[in-house]
Each structure stands twice: as C-alpha cells, then as structure tokens.
C-alpha cells in the first residue's frame, strides 16, 4: 500500500465521516464512488491535510502526511475538478510559478499534456470552460511525475470524448505504476477503468475492494454496476 487511510473520523454539525478506511496500491486505479454529500470530498480533503480529522491517520509511502508534508506532497498529485486557481493569470504564468516547487517536474510530460488536452497556455482560467479547467488542474497534477494521484471529480464537466481520453490517461499511468484515486458519481467511469471500488454512503465506507469482488458480492445476476449502485443507494425503490 502506498496510501493508507485508517479510521478517519470527521464530525460536522450535520454530517459525520465514520471510521473511513481504505488503501491505494501502486499500479491500481481506485474509483471512489458515492452520491453527493456522501463524504468523498471530505475524505479527500482529509487525505491532503486540508481538513483536520477528529480521528484516524493518513499514511503515504509509510509515513504520516503531518510529519513529512513537503516531501509527501511532491510525490502525490491532486486535482480539484473544476475549481479554478488565479482566474485572471495566464496558465503559462501559473505553471512558471508552480514548476520550481517540484524537483521532479517533467517538462516533456507537461508539453505532452498541454498538447494532449489542447490547452492554450496564453489563456487564463477565466476564459476556460469547466471541462478545460478540469484538464488544466489535471495537467498540473500529472506534470511532476506523481506516484499517487488523488483526483476529486476529475471527469465531471468533461465531454464524452475528453472523458474517454482521460480514462485512457489513467490506464497509461497505471501501467507506469502510479496509484490513482478518483472520486466520481459516474458509474460507467468505474466500469471502464477502476481496479478497486471504494463505495461510501452517508459518511461510512460500505465497501473497499477489487471491482470483481464488489460485483460478485453486491450485484445481482445480469445487473450492471450502475444498477447495483442505484439499488444500494436507493434501497427498495430501485430494487
């Protein structure tokens, strides 16, 4: 395991993350699935030290994030979906500032992703569509040879073609040994590329296991993964 989340607890007045535990392995893609408000973003923010859990630990490469923050952050990549940074600055300028923080920055990879995602460096985030913002965030996360990628809703806002391209990028990264965690509520993304499924509901991890095991345990005969998730979330109404 290169990322281990153990018994994560976070209490809010109206919501609680309850003993969330799962792990990420090298060369595997984990789909983090759950409906809106299930606790995906809180979990991810806790994993990145943005939210302070009331209990539990997050370990990267065997060490606690809190004890080796800078070094661990160099080895991981994060993308926050459509959140735009510095909306009025040119992407070229943002990248120029970000680059020196990473001694692992890969200029060739950066140029490749720039080309691959058709990103114009001279544009500002304000001029980008929601889908393009996702791509810029991903490009930043992918250009420093991260060993683990933590992506919050990376496919939301993308057109089907871009989504397909992105899922192919995940598969290529997987072959290079990168661990990928991506949260989503698009079940077909899981079917397409996830090796593991982490299913969270109402703040609790219901299941965290290989996709095949998940399907074997939860899916009825002939049922698609999407139907399974709908049934699990909706109860009898979707049975």
């Amino acid at each position: 395991m290169i990322v281990e989340v153990q018994n994560l607890v976070k209490r809010y007045p109206t919501f609680e993350l309850k003993n969330v535990s799962f792990g990420l392995e090298r060369g595997r893609i984990a789909g983090f699935v759950g409906r809106n408000g299930a606790g995906k973003t809180t979990t991810i923010k806790s994993m990145l030290g943005m939210v302070h859990p009331d209990g539990g630990t997050v370990r990267y490469f065997g060490g606690l994030l809190s004890e080796n923050e800078a070094e661990i952050k160099k080895r991981i990549g994060y993308s926050a979906g459509t959140l735009a940074w510095y909306p009025r600055k040119r992407i070229r300028e943002i990248v120029r500032v970000v680059k020196p923080f990473y001694d692992t920055w890969d200029e060739d990879a950066y140029r490749n992703y720039l080309d691959f995602f058709s990103i114009d460096e001279e544009k500002t985030p304000l001029e980008l569509s929601e889908g393009m913002k996702v791509k810029v965030n991903l490009m930043l996360a992918l250009s420093h040879r991260a060993e683990a990628l933590i992506l919050d809703e990376p496919t939301s806002g993308l057109d089907p073609f871009s989504r397909n391209e992105l899922l192919n990028v995940f598969l290529a990264l997987k072959r290079e040994g990168v661990a990928v965690l991506f949260s989503t509520h698009i079940i077909s993304d899981l079917e397409r590329c996830a090796d593991d499924i982490i299913y969270i509901s109402k703040g609790s991890v219901v299941a965290a296991r290989p996709k095949e095991d998940f399907i074997r345990e939860y899916s009825a005969a002939g049922e698609s993964l999407e139907d399974t998730m709908l049934r699990l979330e909706g109860g009898a109404a979707h049975a």
Binding site: G49, A70, K73, L83, Y86, P87, K89, F101
Partner: peptide, 18 residues
C-alpha cells in the same frame, strides 16, 4: 481570496506553515 490562493498554496509541496 478570489483566486483560491490559500487552498492552492496549501496544496503545494510545502509545509502548511510556509
């Protein structure tokens, strides 16, 4: 604040106190 600067900075490979 409008540019989400604090969150962006906290995600950079530096200690939060930096």
């Amino acid at each position: 604040r409008e540019a989400n600067d604090v969150v962006f900075s906290a995600l950079l490979p530096i200690a939060k106190r930096d």
